[in-house]
Design a binder for these strands. Structure first.
Lengths: 245, 245
DNA sequence: GAACTGTACGGGTCTAGACCAGTAATCAAA
DNA sequence: TTTGATTACTGGTCTAGACCCGTACAGTTC
């Protein structure tokens, strides 16, 4: 995942200040230590208090610090920095683990959307869509079996580089995935799938059904993926809601 | 402020404005419709633009609207309002589904923290902790087998109402769960567990390993739970990170 | 028609103040 | 010793401005 040396930290003051707090303070304090007050930080950095608050807000959203009104801002515990789940592709996931991702295409065709698929993609029954079935590999070992459907306007079959990251190609055509709703359940693999994934028949697998959409809410993908349970697990972070709903 | 058919909507202006936008505008617009500009809303509500932005920020975090710089603020799609996963207890989950949750306690004892448990609870090896093993039922049907460990200072065995929500009892003693990190994987159930869950041997199950902590980062729970895959699935919403990490 | 170029107007950032509301320590009174 | 009030200090909200930068559309040029 994106750790790094330094970047110029794009020009915004609150980003530079967030970085400064991370490097100069958080790295030298223990969890639950208190930070200087917002007013003092504003003074120290020579900016307005609202700018300091914007910087702290980003740190709060990353779980690095937490606020208690009337008391102060405190260093968060290290554990939560293992980090909440962001939307990542299989490709990104594997690279983050230091593995080399690849794909073996099993089939790729233009199909008419049937009931379930049309419903999930929010297109009309019979609408053209692209279906891709791929085995996802990490360092040449099978990790997952993927079944993806796209509306044909979003990703036509022609011109798709099937063995590469489809998310990247979606982004190139202006349909960057922004949000996914996932349903995670488990199953016992049947013969065929177990064979493809190179595990014994009757092994357990995670089944992830995912609907992804762009920032504008356009649905771009419906996918059903079987992950080898011995190789893959999902990390999620959930927080209690603060506001009303 | 003489509103009446409404709830008082705690006193903050930005909360009242968020409510007003929800009820007066979002309910009467379609997804991807554009909202009035921030400057116009500020005018209309007679507040500063920053206050309108605070109101819109809450709506953005709820997925009700989205911003595009240079263009405007738009109504989000209805689907995402099914809502991202918040931290909920088994008890809350079942109630939300209209089922009656209950528990059958299998064992409850004070134990010394061993390596893995001590590590996850961030206590010293040998420290006293409470171990509870319960079968969780919905309308009297087994749904999950739960193994929970608490530091003894957080929840001593004496005085615990084992058949009720342990989260509630944690909250009563000032240790409200705020954040959980979960690892979700799958397994094939062994004889004993399958028997307890009343499913055939060799059935699939979701395995959720969870570490919960308070707002202040104090770890209060380590749990490993087996959910019947035929009855339970996890819904999660993930978004692409906007800022750097 | 296609390609450029202004130019409103949109959200994003920022300021230098103000007051509100919760916390915690101090200190006096019971 | 305990209780309660005072008070200084914290983050939370809010204002009325400012400039920055991206978007989209109208008008012009090729």
């Amino acid at each position: 995942m994106g750790r790094d040396g330094q970047r110029p930290t794009s020009g915004f003051k609150y980003e530079r200040i967030a970085d400064a707090i991370r490097h100069d303070m958080l790295d030298n304090l223990l969890p639950n230590d208190i930070l200087p007050s917002e007013r003092e930080l504003a003074d120290r950095f020579g900016v307005s208090r609202m700018t300091v608050r914007a910087a702290i807000a980003t740190l709060v959203s990353q779980g690095r610090v937490y606020n208690i009104q009337g008391s102060g801002t405190y260093v968060g515990s290290k554990e939560v920095l293992t980090k909440s789940a962001a939307l990542t592709s299989f490709t990104e996931d594997m690279v983050a683990r230091g593995l080399r991702p690849s794909s073996r295409v099993i089939c790729a065709q233009r199909v008419a959307a049937t009931g379930m698929i049309a419903h999930r993609l929010a297109v009309e029954t019979g609408a053209a869509c692209t279906h891709v079935r791929r085995l996802r590999l990490a360092d040449e070992d099978p990790m997952a079996l993927e079944n993806v459907y796209f509306p044909a306007e979003v990703l036509p079959l022609e011109g798709v580089r099937l063995a590469e990251s489809l998310y990247d190609q979606l982004a190139e055509s202006g349909n960057e995935a922004f949000r996914s709703e996932q349903e995670i359940t488990a199953t016992v693999l049947d013969d065929e799938t177990a064979g493809l994934l190179d595990v014994p028949e009757g092994s357990a697998a995670l089944v992830v059904t995912r609907v992804s959409s762009t920032r504008r809410g356009r649905i771009i993908e419906y996918a059903r993926t079987y992950y080898r349970a011995d190789r893959y697990s999902f990390m999620t972070t959930v927080e209690r809601e603060s506001g009303e709903r």
